[in-house]
Design a protein around this nucleic acid. Structure first.
Lengths: 135, 135, 135, 135
DNA sequence: GTGGTCTAGACCACG
DNA sequence: GTGGTCTAGACCACA
């Protein structure tokens, strides 16, 4: 679990999942949490690739997906910028949360668990999560 | 989304995900929910492969994983049987649920959502799920 | 782990290994330990198959192997008898022990363990074995 | 008994046992003995398959089992690496040794041999092993 | 009949 | 280039 700080974004990459997905998720997270502000300039593809010791193609793929999500936009000759629209971020967060929740509820139902079970489990997990936060 | 009934197990296979994973998940689910009883005989590898129109090796791979999970056992020359041990099923379900929940909570936190948000979302999703039952 | 007593031989069969091998090993063991005496009559193939709920072909295969080992002999029209020769049993035991030991030492060496490690491990295992004997 | 050297690992494959098991055992052994160092790159699936003249799927099966054992890990697009954790190797070796020893002691007891017999046999076998080194 | 092993060859995702 | 998935078809051990 190596950590790498690039600008205001902290990356933590491992080799067990697709690298471009990890970059994508962690940039998304930074935007959703406001760690990187609206309208700010993103690191360039090359710069990020170098810092994360990745192939530029891998970073590029994550950036393309971010733009498709409406979270960033390219300005010709100037690089990539986070969107200035709070609505965009809000809509994106809502949609992605809905998607995660649908998948999760389907998993729980496939195990035959009831809503009460799930609520209880999550309650415990959030509490536990706070205790060991950033261990 | 084709549906196929084999014994007491209902399968629903599509081509967007690994076939053996879908078989694995759906058999697990049937066992966890008790749709196929403890100690019951599973369909043979060849039989299931034929019914699901897939290669026997693909089904075998799912069966091997089920056995590694302790959910089934092979009897030489007789076929594959669901474990007779309720504890095994219980342990398996608990562990897998914990795994799913950890991943889910991490996703939610990466979007900056609070526990209350999540509880509320889930509550709505479960209600919705009941409404569209077998749409 | 079901146990089944047939004559003076106790069988304990599970489905994770070849059934004929288990029958073979357990009869061998009974002879080696003298639980079934030299010159005694063995249960018939059919009788043993019925008691162990096996296919007679499976038992037959074990019996053929026993005869090839020189541990039993068929008397026409009378059934199968344990050899009357103590030498045969002795030789068999020595040879089989050598075979087991060769395989075992090869396994230990493949893990890079020294003779002292092995002696020590075995010492502990034998002691432990006595404590829980026939739990 | 053909021998084949691939990187720092020496393979010796015959057709009387499952090929993937032999690959598995011999890689395990190389790691346990330190013949291939912690953190080193393994030969790629295709490369090893070609050198050992077997199908890539056969090698892959061995590699998957190694990863399940915690002895190796995959890095996306880069290949398979030996774990960097000495503890993992140590735990693995201890567990596998215990398993081998339990099986062996059970075999010896089934022949009615005492601990002293066994210690003596093993002592002789180790000495013999040294004498015929690389016969 | 059951599952287990192996091969050959195809196509895909990832980097 | 890496590994992952899938198919088709062969042969084997076991019961």
């Amino acid at each position: 679990m190596e950590k790498e700080q690039v600008g205001t974004i902290r990356f933590q990459i491992d080799f067990s999942q697709p690298l471009y997905e990890q970059v994508l998720d962690q940039v998304r997270s930074s935007i959703a949490k406001g760690e990187i502000g609206l309208g700010e300039k993103m690191p360039s593809v090359r710069e990020l690739a170098q810092d994360l010791k990745m192939n530029p193609n891998t970073v590029m793929r994550a950036y393309q997906e971010l733009e498709r999500d409406g979270l960033t936009e390219k300005r010709r000759g100037q690089g990539t910028y986070v969107t200035s629209s709070p609505e965009r971020v809000h809509i994106f967060r809502r949609d992605l949360a809905a998607q995660y929740i649908n998948a999760f509820v389907a998993q729980m139902e496939s195990l035959g668990l009831t809503e009460d079970d799930v609520q209880e489990y999550i309650h415990q997990r959030f509490i536990a999560g706070k205790g060991e936060h950033e261990k």
